[in-house]
Amino acid sequence: MDPPCSPPFFVGSVNGLICLFNRRGDTYIWNPIIRKSKKLLKSSWGTSRYTKYGFGYDDKCNDYKALFIDHCGNSCNDELSNLRVVVNIYSSRTDSWTTLHDQLQGIFVLNRLASDTWGSLELPICGEEVFNIKLGVVDSELSVLYTCKAGTTSDVWILKNRRVNVSWMKRFTIEYPQYAILYGFDSPIFTFSIYLNLSDNDDILLLIPGKIMIFDGSTKKFKHATIVKECNTAEIYGESMVNPLTL
Score class of each variant (00 low, 15 high):
residue 240 S to D: 00
residue 197 N to D: 14
residue 60 K to Q: 12
residue 5 C to V: 07
residue 244 P to A: 01
residue 5 C to I: 08
residue 144 V to L: 06
residue 65 K to W: 05
residue 162 R to Y: 15
residue 6 S to V: 11
residue 125 I to W: 06
residue 26 D to C: 10
residue 142 L to S: 08
residue 145 L to R: 13
residue 55 F to P: 02
residue 32 P to S: 08
residue 121 L to T: 11
residue 121 L to H: 11
residue 245 L to R: 10
residue 220 K to N: 14
residue 139 D to I: 02
residue 183 Y to W: 04
residue 163 R to V: 12
residue 58 D to Q: 11
residue 139 D to V: 02
residue 154 S to H: 01
residue 205 L to F: 05
residue 115 S to L: 04
residue 135 L to D: 11
residue 64 Y to G: 00
residue 151 G to L: 01
residue 59 D to C: 10
residue 210 G to W: 04
residue 227 I to V: 11
residue 50 Y to W: 13
residue 74 N to R: 00
residue 166 V to Q: 06
residue 165 N to R: 13
residue 205 L to N: 01
residue 215 F to D: 05
residue 173 T to Y: 12
residue 222 F to K: 04
residue 219 T to H: 07
residue 189 I to E: 11
residue 233 T to M: 04
residue 137 V to S: 06
residue 66 A to W: 00
residue 102 D to W: 00
residue 130 V to R: 12
residue 86 V to Q: 06
residue 153 T to C: 13
residue 18 I to C: 11
residue 180 A to S: 15
residue 234 A to W: 04
residue 178 Q to W: 07
residue 189 I to L: 08
residue 214 I to Q: 08
residue 119 G to R: 14
residue 117 T to Q: 08
residue 4 P to N: 01
residue 82 N to V: 06
residue 63 D to T: 08
residue 57 Y to T: 13
residue 109 V to W: 01
residue 243 N to T: 03
residue 108 F to P: 01
residue 100 L to F: 06
residue 53 Y to I: 00
residue 112 R to F: 09
residue 122 E to Y: 03
residue 126 C to I: 13
residue 17 L to I: 09
residue 128 E to D: 10
residue 35 R to S: 15
residue 198 L to W: 00
residue 54 G to H: 02
residue 53 Y to P: 00
residue 36 K to F: 08
residue 228 V to Y: 07
residue 137 V to I: 15
residue 191 T to W: 15
residue 161 N to Q: 05
residue 67 L to G: 01
residue 170 K to G: 03
residue 131 F to T: 05
residue 153 T to I: 14
residue 139 D to K: 11
residue 44 S to E: 07
residue 37 S to Y: 12
residue 39 K to D: 09
residue 131 F to L: 06
residue 97 W to H: 14
residue 50 Y to N: 02
residue 58 D to A: 01
residue 43 S to H: 06
residue 197 N to G: 14
residue 215 F to R: 03
residue 128 E to T: 02
residue 115 S to N: 13
residue 212 I to N: 03
residue 233 T to E: 14
residue 21 F to A: 00
residue 68 F to M: 05
residue 134 K to T: 12
residue 192 F to Y: 05
residue 35 R to W: 13
residue 47 T to R: 11
residue 232 N to A: 15
residue 153 T to V: 15
residue 77 N to P: 01
residue 234 A to K: 08
